[in-house]
């Protein structure tokens, strides 16, 4: 499987390592080369310095036709844009964007993008831990419809389930 990860933060770095260990081709992008220090020295995937919202950069990194595309930078909007680029222009199978603003996370799930929201995740988990009832939200908000213009989207025929490989 070809896996593209935009953003080499803590989450991006551990996922890159995990996907690679499981035998996948991993391409990880970050705007700063310093971010790649978080990767283990044994990492043999492709670490590319560049802006993951720039189609040229993504293509040069070889992101087209990837099976999984994860947008995990610290910027919600950068993630949303990178994910939409992957869906619209790069023919990627499964696309997930981290969106920490709950309103935007829900709005983009409605628009056809799978999103994961750290705010919701932590709220539900912590409330559960403290014994309070939670909203029982799924950890990943599944796309509610086909992404606009996503008629060539390969994942369209697949059930809108969350990728569980991670």
């Amino acid at each position: 499987m070809k896996v593209v990860i935009v953003g080499c933060g803590r989450v991006g770095a551990v996922l890159a390592e995990a996907f690679e260990k499981a035998g996948n081709d991993v391409i990880i992008l970050d705007r700063s080369t310093g971010a790649f220090d978080k990767l283990p020295s044994t990492f043999r995937g492709n670490a590319v310095r560049g802006d993951g919202t720039d189609e040229d950069v993504l293509r040069r990194a070889g992101a087209q036709d990837a099976d999984v595309f994860l947008a995990l930078t610290e910027g919600d909007n950068r993630n949303v844009m990178a994910a939409q680029l992957a869906t619209e222009a790069l023919n990627v199978g499964r696309v997930l964007a981290k969106v920490n603003d709950p309103v935007r996370a829900a709005a983009y799930a409605d628009l056809g993008l799978a999103t994961i929201c750290r705010t919701n995740l932590m709220e539900d988990t912590i409330l559960g831990f403290a014994g309070l009832s939670t909203a029982q939200r799924p950890p990943i908000l599944a796309p509610q419809r086909t992404h606009p213009g996503g008629e060539h989207h390969r994942a369209e025929a697949e059930p809108a389930a969350a990728p569980s490989e991670a």
Binding site: N77, V80, M81, A107, D110
Partner: peptide, 16 residues
């Protein structure tokens, strides 16, 4: 000055 922000603002305005 950021394209990704402008995109999200317009999409939220339009669809939400």
């Amino acid at each position: 000055g950021d394209d990704e922000d402008n995109l999200v603002i317009c999409q939220m305005a339009k669809h939400h």
